[in-house]
Design a protein around this nucleic acid. Structure first.
Lengths: 201, 201
DNA sequence: ACCTGAACACCGTTCAAGT
DNA sequence: ACCTGAACACCGTTCAAGT
């Protein structure tokens, strides 16, 4: 048992994840063969299997990287003082930065977690992190009297996530540029959902 | 060229779609082999290929059947007189009738349309039908002064679809029973989005 | 037209063998 | 530990042959 070369190991893994993601986006998870990845990364099947136990393990690695992308997209909410303003900025970032590549990968993953418990757990971890970010920002805003004090924020946070995910699903149908078309209506809808109820006359 | 036996043909196709859908839900599209479907339907590969040109054609057949399910789920909106009431009923139906089976199949399809133009077109057809149903109901409601007259209903209809799809995505993460948890918050949110703006004091 | 089953090129994964 | 490439069981699809 020789000692592991940590630097080589992490470099090779990163390289594999990168070429694999490119192939998965173009041809899908099941349309990409291990040989495709081997060729793109200039290594034999044996070597590939030395770094990843299976094709599924490669997807798991990609999901872990998705956590960082999600962080970046929701970053305006992390230390926000005005929720609607921050959420609006986050939506702008999503609309301008999310590409067809990202959407394809996200959809591919969605199908895969259906039957692979390990992948589902990895995806749930990313989702819980997103939930925590949104809920935290909402709590600060409600404490600051920006929101209707009667709102149950645990449900509202899920609703916000559902709305964003729904927009991303529409973008997979209509193309990523459709996100920009829906921005104004989405922001207005959020404002109506969150603000203190106006008194009826 | 003998004449086609229409009755046999449509029976066999229906049978194939049914056993295929069952397999796809349990094992996924790519986890199901043509041999699995052959065995379940008691026929040889040659016979299967006589009725469907490819595995993709089988999915296309399933998407066409999805159109009917969607119709049923949104049926309260078809001849509605009170939009919020009808939409609320539609959401109740969705929450009570959508199963893990349906969600798995829907997600599987989502991944597949990414790289198959024919499947994407079939899915877009279902989506346009859903859009037409929601928009139609919204227009009637706005004409009837139930909604804020300033709302751009073409965008609102898409937003409603996005919200429903987002809830379905959450259900694939948290299980179909989570839909019931989100119903009250979702209905309240829709009410706030749609109703005429209250005058500020 | 409807059906069979062998055959084809290809897949993910394993493993004996090398350094 | 890191790497090779042949070999294994299996995949979607085709096709000559039957009724």
């Amino acid at each position: 048992m020789r000692k592991r070369n940590e630097k080589l190991n992490s470099e090779r893994r990163k390289q594999i994840l990168q070429v694999a993601a490119q192939w998965f986006v173009k041809r899908g998870f099941h349309g990409t063969s291990m040989k495709d990845i081997c060729d793109a990364a200039n290594m034999s099947p044996g070597t590939l299997y030395h770094y990843f136990e299976s094709k599924t393990e490669i997807i798991a690695g990609i999901i872990a990287e998705e956590a960082q992308i999600m962080e970046a997209l929701l970053s305006p909410l992390r230390s926000s003082t005005a929720f609607l303003q921050a959420m609006s900025e986050a939506l702008d970032i999503i609309a301008s930065e999310v590409t067809e590549h990202d959407l394809a990968l996200h959809t591919e993953i969605a199908a895969e977690i259906q039957r692979q418990p390990a992948l589902r757990e990895a995806q749930l971890k990313v989702d819980r992190q997103a939930y925590a970010i949104v809920l935290g920002a909402l709590i600060r805003a409600q404490g600051d009297k920006q929101l209707d004090p009667a709102l149950d924020l645990t449900h509202i946070a899920k609703l916000v996530l559902a709305l964003v995910d729904g927009l991303l699903w529409r973008a997979t149908l209509e193309g990523p540029q459709s996100l920009k078309d829906y921005l104004p209506a989405t922001k207005e809808a959020l404002a109506r959902i969150l603000r203190a109820k106006q008194r009826r006359t």
